[in-house]
Design a protein around this nucleic acid. Sequence first.
DNA 1: CAGTGGTCTAGACCACCAC
DNA 2: TGGTGGTCTAGACCACTGG
Lengths: 236, 236
Amino acid sequence: MTKLDLVYQDLKQKIDTGVYATDTLLPSENALASLYGASRDTIRKALAKLRDQGFIQSQKGRGSVVINRQQYVFPVSGVISYKELSQRLNFKTTTTMIENTQMPLPIANFKAVDPHAKPCTTTRLVRLREVNGEPVIIDIDYINGDVVPAISKAVAEDSLYAYFEGQLHLTIAYAKKEITVEPATAQDQQLLHLDANASVVVVKSVTSLEDTTAFQYTESRHRADRFRFQEFARRA
Amino acid sequence: MTKLDLVYQDLKQKIDTGVYATDTLLPSENALASLYGASRDTIRKALAKLRDQGFIQSQKGRGSVVINRQQYVFPVSGVISYKELSQRLNFKTTTTMIENTQMPLPIANFKAVDPHAKPCTTTRLVRLREVNGEPVIIDIDYINGDVVPAISKAVAEDSLYAYFEGQLHLTIAYAKKEITVEPATAQDQQLLHLDANASVVVVKSVTSLEDTTAFQYTESRHRADRFRFQEFARRA
DNA sequence: CAGTGGTCTAGACCACCAC
DNA sequence: TGGTGGTCTAGACCACTGG
């Protein structure tokens, strides 16, 4: 844990628990520097992170205002696993593996989100996500066989990310995502209990490692009436 | 223009035009510092910005790799106006004002995106966006009357953001957005030429100024079959 | 006016990568 | 081993806010 992250985590926690309340000012940068025994620059980096995440807004000559008790609803935003998400939200979720096969990457299917995808063999994983006993999402994953050899049912039904990071020590760096709305396929209708003319929200993503290897291609098909996505963005 | 932004813009432009090609390394931070006559720290801040935007990925001991020729499709991500967007994409677009009235802010309608919205009088603007003669989006704006007095038809059909920033000198700081899918209303069906059982993608947003005043509430209703949203995200 | 955040600098030490 | 990015520091000057 770096000093920057210690300051960031502590401030974030104090904002979350109301020690620093919404619409009030944080201590000044110099005050925080003394408090944490850090240089002003390190404090500023922690504040920049809070700013990017939408916790504070800084104003010249005044200070940094707490603006937002962060609330997660469905952050397609951010690179986060389904397991991490459901834990944070206290959902009662189950994951059922429907398919686990080896096949070449269907490049054309991910053209929009990664125009330069290269051929490779993959593990194809199809999983059904249920929340409170209701089927909500079908996740279709293609995992690069050069990076990850094979995946057990136990891992697939628990958490891929925990396996990748904890066991294989892969460093996940970034992802590109795309959201569209499409007519439900026969499989969507069957697994998600949908009518013939229903739509699903499709989230396609490519996740890459620190060395820029694209190693996971995912197509996530959501019941449209259960889909919700929130984000925070800054101007310029 | 700060030195940081000069470096950022120049590097970004060189990446866009291929001077620094995808999958190649940028000059080292020390080299860039000499090149631009800036300190290493300033260079690092510019690189951090490029990293956040998905242009480069840095690797300890190796350098910073160009990973992505940025491509805009429909950035709900980012605080950007429809006019800025259509210019960037070279769309042929028209905007038609349908309604321009004064009314109290419909707080309940924006509860999900701003739970603490306060009562205020607003200008309600309803505008239809067409791309290549095809109606694609209905924008319903509520603009805080305490911040912006009234809005002319000419401004509404050109660009609100250009007016807010250029004429009124407001500093737009950040926005919260939410995406959901809803059944098309009668107005949706009529204006967007949709069937009775069609769905629309609804993007609700609250935009705030530097002093944290929420001044614009927008409900953007998109034809589902024309909607596409892409984003870049980093882990942790 | 004093205090705040915004920008910029020069230098230090570390962990990591490639040769 | 030399060069790279990652972290941290101490200090400077500026523009802005508030009383």
